[in-house]
């Protein structure tokens, strides 16, 4: 087991940032630390890098304790959220920094350093920009310099703090794909922090979802999406509509309409609160078994149409439907909404 994080606790004053987090990473695994801001994900990352010292717990790499080592001896590559490039050094000098900082026999000679820097600059596709200063590079380019700089020390683990946080949407998607390819090529155990669930689900082999300094669920993106362990996981990974229901014979019943209860749900008879994805509704024009509402507005831009409805009780609800379904509806129509599937905790 390359990386074993055991019961890491960290408090700032009285604020508990991490309350006993344990996580394991396999060789070459790509792990996302996902969570809202203040969930402790960056603190955990900084504990692994050595920039924060946990109050208790252990972090081991192939059996040896990382906490016993100084930051400079850990050989863990860290790409900072705002890159933290050395502003008075060129891209090439930034990349070379870690090589020049090596001591004694480990330190390569100038020719070797130059060759390695050239190789890394080519790896991150910055050929021709090696002589530029950080202020002369775009956000995406700076991020790749930061990555090359971290890779230069041949890190045992690569850590990325919100790697796409400061970039615009298009550059973000390109870099995401590129980073995934780079990971496949280098095979380096990588942990990245993000608050964007889409990013985590798309990029990671496994996702660790944090809330208030504790792990809510760890699993593959499929597991998290299809078998959420807690309402928080379900809500964090997508939009949710919450509706009261009755549980009868292992199904959720909404005003006479039956919906399938998804795996892991509570099935004990009684009333409960159902969590439904906005796109898991059948929409029927007119009144029948199900939740009665009036269609107030249709927003048909995007992958699916958004329908704003108003329940007869006066509560608003927003659901999503394919465009062909939305086209058959008019604003002001009376509709019946029938959830297809739901989760109850």
């Amino acid at each position: 087991m390359p990386l074993e994080i055991d019961h890491i606790r960290k408090t700032y004053g009285k604020f508990p940032a991490l309350g006993g987090v344990s996580l394991r990473a396999e060789d070459s695994e790509f792990i996302a630390l996902l969570g809202p801001s203040g969930s402790g994900k960056t603190t955990l990352l900084r504990c692994i890098a050595g920039l924060e010292v946990p109050d208790s717990g252990s972090i081991r790499f192939r059996g040896e304790s990382l906490l016993a080592q100084k930051v400079r001896d850990r050989r863990i590559g860290l790409v900072f959220q705002h890159y933290a490039l050395f502003r008075h050094m060129t891209a090439a000098q930034n990349v070379a920094f870690g090589l020049r900082a090596k001591r004694g026999k480990e330190r390569p000679n100038n020719r070797q350093i130059n060759a390695r820097v050239e190789e890394l600059i080519a790896l991150v596709q910055l050929d021709g920009l090696a002589g530029r200063y950080p202020s002369q590079l775009s956000g995406g380019q700076r991020q790749r310099v930061a990555l090359a700089r971290a890779l230069a020390i041949e890190p045992r683990i690569l850590l990325l703090d919100e790697p796409f946080g400061a970039l615009d949407a298009k550059v973000r998607r390109e870099l995401r794909r590129w980073l995934r390819q780079l990971h496949e090529r280098t095979g380096l155990t990588t942990i990245f922090v993000t608050h964007d669930q889409e990013e985590a689900l798309e990029l990671a082999d496994r996702v660790a979802l944090l809330k208030d300094g504790a792990l809510e669920q760890v699993g593959t993106p499929e597991e998290l999406y299809h078998q959420p362990a807690t309402p928080f996981v379900f809500e964090f990974l997508g939009d949710v509509v919450k509706l009261p229901c009755e549980i009868v014979d292992g199904a959720a019943v909404f005003a006479g309409a039956r919906a399938k209860l998804l795996g892991g749900s509570l099935t004990r008879a009684g009333s409960g609160l159902a969590y439904v994805r906005p796109d898991a509704f059948d929409i029927v024009v007119g009144e029948s078994e199900g939740l009665k509402a009036v269609l107030r507005d249709v927003v048909s831009a995007g992958a699916s149409a958004r329908l704003d409805c108003l329940f007869d009780g006066g509560e608003p609800i927003e659901i999503r439907a394919p465009h062909d379904v939305a086209l058959q509806l008019k604003i002001g129509d009376r509709v019946t909404l029938r959830p297809r599937e739901a989760r109850v905790w």
């Binding site: 050595g50 400079r72 860290l78 900072f80 900082a101 090596k102 020390i153």
Partner: peptide, 9 residues
């Protein structure tokens, strides 16, 4: 901090 992670004293 970056310098420290890169092995600089």
């Amino acid at each position: 901090a970056a310098a420290a992670t890169l092995g600089a004293g």
